[in-house]
Design a protein around this nucleic acid. Sequence first.
DNA 1: ACCTGAACACCGTTCAAGT
DNA 2: ACCTGAACACCGTTCAAGT
Lengths: 199, 199
Amino acid sequence: MAAAIQVVDTQGAGAFSMRALGAFLECDPTAMYRHFRTKNALLDALLDSVVREGSAELPQSDDPRADIRANFRQLRRSLLAHPTLAPLVLRRPPGVGAYWERSDHAVAQLHRAGMDPVDAANVYQTLLFYTLGHALSEARQLARALEREGAGADGGPVASVDAPPERHPDLSDVAPHLRDDNEAQFLAGLDLILRDLPR
Amino acid sequence: MAAAIQVVDTQGAGAFSMRALGAFLECDPTAMYRHFRTKNALLDALLDSVVREGSAELPQSDDPRADIRANFRQLRRSLLAHPTLAPLVLRRPPGVGAYWERSDHAVAQLHRAGMDPVDAANVYQTLLFYTLGHALSEARQLARALEREGAGADGGPVASVDAPPERHPDLSDVAPHLRDDNEAQFLAGLDLILRDLPR
DNA sequence: ACCTGAACACCGTTCAAGT
DNA sequence: ACCTGAACACCGTTCAAGT
C-alpha cells in the first residue's frame, strides 16, 4: 500500500498506527486486516518495497567495480528516500527476500572480477552491512532534523564528534574530517572495501 | 538501572514497559519518572551502558592492528550479550557519547600505525558502521531464535541465503560460504577493511 | 466477500493526593 | 523529598454484526 508509505513519510514512523492509516484512507482502522494479517506484516511489505526500489535498473557495464558501487549507492539512496522508515529495515534479515536482486547482482560482479567464492562472500557481506549501518545512521539523523525544522533540512554529518579535546586528543584531530559530504564519505568507505578489486 | 536490563534480557525488548518494570521492581509503574524524565531517557541510559560495556579494558599493545581488532570485537560481543536490546542501539547517533572511549582508542591506533587524518576518519567510520550493521543483524536473528526455543539457541548464520538457484546462480554459488562461524566471518570483514594497515 | 464498530487488554504520561 | 493510584489519550487486534 503506497498510502502507508505516504503516511510514514509525512507524519513520521512513530505516528504510523492502524488508526492513523485508517483516518488517512477514510475507512475503519480495522479494515486493513483483510489485506494484511497484522501490522507487522504490513510494515514488512513496506520495508521490502523500499529495499527493492530501483533495483530493476542495476547496471551491467564492462566495469564490475563501478557496477557494485552503483548497486550500493542506489540502496543507500532508497533508504534515505524514506528516512523515518529506514531504521525499521533492520527488523528484516538482510541477505534474503528483498535483497535477492541486489545481492545476486553484486556477487555476479565480484565473480566477473575474478574473485573466488569465499572472498566474494566476505566482501559482499562486508559491503552490505557497511551500507546498512551507514545509511541507517544517516537516515536516523535526517529524520530527527526533518521533524525538528520541517522540510528542507540536511541532517548534518552522519557522525559528528564533539568530545572534550583534552581527554580525547586523537578524536578531536579527526573530527573535522567527519563533517564532509555524506555521500562522498560513504563512497570512500565502499572503495576502501573494494580496494583489491581490479579496476 | 540494572533491573531494566534484566527485564529486557529475560522478557524481550518488546515486553519492556513501564508497567512491566514496575511489576518486576514491585513498585508503582509511575515511580520511575522520579529518576528518568521519560521512557526514552531510561532506554537511552541502557543503550549507553551496553556500548560502554568493557571499554575500560581496551588493550594498548605494540600492535595497533590487533588493538583495533580487539576494540571492535569487544563492541560486537557487548551488543550480542543483549540481543533483544541491541537493535535499539541504532536509535542513538554513533560517534558520540557512549562511543568516545572506543573511537578515541581506535583513532589513536590508526594514528600510531602512521595513517593520515583523512584516511583515519574514513577507516574509523567504515569499521564502526560495519560492526554495528553486522552485530545488530546477528543480534536480531539471535533474539528471534531465543524467543522461539528459549535458552540455548545459536541463531544460525547471520545472513542465510535461500534464493531459487535457477534465477540467481551466482548467489547460490556463494551461499555455502555464508554459513560459517559468525565471529570468524565478522573478523574477516574487519581484516578486509584493515588490509592496508602495517602489521 | 468485504467493511464496520464496539470491545478487550494493553500502552506512556500527568497530576492531585498521600506519607 | 519520594511514592501512589486514578485518570487521560492513546495503542493492536478480535469478532459479532451488518451490507
